[in-house]
Amino acid sequence: MNLRHDRLRVLGIWLAVGLVYLIWVRATGWGIPCPIHTVTGLECPGCGITRMLTALSRGDWASARAANAGLFYLSPFLALFLGRALWLWLTGRKADKPVLRIAGAGLVIFLVVWGIVRNLSL
């Protein structure tokens, strides 16, 4: 097997794990709790992502937005960023490091600011 087939296999496994987790959460309502929220009571930038993705899988846009508005609005950009990174990984191509660093830094800054803002109203 070549490297590309190995990477496709890894991707397939992760997609299958994600699908099984989605089915589990939809069937039972039980998800993995956020350790930050459990310990501090504060919501991290990712709190609600399982509820958001579960709502999106049902086509419930309002509930998805309510679960995590920051990630809901960031999702198209995050999908492009991760999709490009995935494509580069699958094809074995090198990333344009300055663009990747700027985009990655922008995402980190957004998530830090969102993590602060969403806890101001608690």
Score class of each variant (00 low, 15 high):
V39A: 14
T40N: 04
T40I: 05
G41H: 08
G41P: 05
G41I: 05
G41A: 06
L42P: 01
E43Y: 04
E43R: 08
C44N: 10
C47D: 02
C47H: 02
G48D: 04
I49T: 14
I49Y: 05
I49M: 13
I49Q: 10
I49H: 06
I49F: 11
T50W: 07
M52E: 12
M52D: 10
L53F: 15
T54N: 13
A55D: 12
L56N: 10
S57W: 11
S57V: 11
S57T: 13
S57M: 12
S57E: 11
R58M: 09
R58Y: 13
G59T: 06
G59M: 06
G59D: 05
G59L: 05
D60E: 13
A62S: 14
A62R: 14
A62V: 13
S63H: 13
S63W: 09
A64N: 07
R65A: 14
R65W: 12
A66C: 00
A66V: 00
A66M: 02
A67C: 08
A67P: 06
A67E: 03
N68S: 08
A69Q: 11
A69T: 14
A69G: 08
G70N: 09
G70M: 09
F72V: 05
Y73H: 12
L74T: 02
S75R: 03
S75N: 01
S75I: 08
S75W: 08
F77S: 06
F77E: 03
F77I: 13
F77H: 02
L78A: 14
L78F: 12
A79L: 15
A79K: 01
A79F: 12
A79E: 00
L80Q: 00
L80M: 08
F81V: 04
G83L: 07
G83Y: 07
R84P: 00
R84N: 01
R84K: 01
A85N: 13
A85V: 02
A85I: 02
A85K: 05
L86V: 03
W87Y: 13
L88G: 07
L88Y: 13
L88H: 15
L90A: 08
T91G: 00
T91H: 06
T91I: 00
G92Y: 04
G92Q: 06
R93M: 05
R93T: 06
K94E: 15
A95M: 11
A95S: 14
D96F: 14
D96M: 10
P98L: 01
P98A: 02
P98T: 02
V99P: 09
R101K: 13
R101D: 10
A103P: 04
G104A: 07
A105V: 12
A105D: 02
G106D: 03
G106L: 06
L107E: 00
V108T: 14
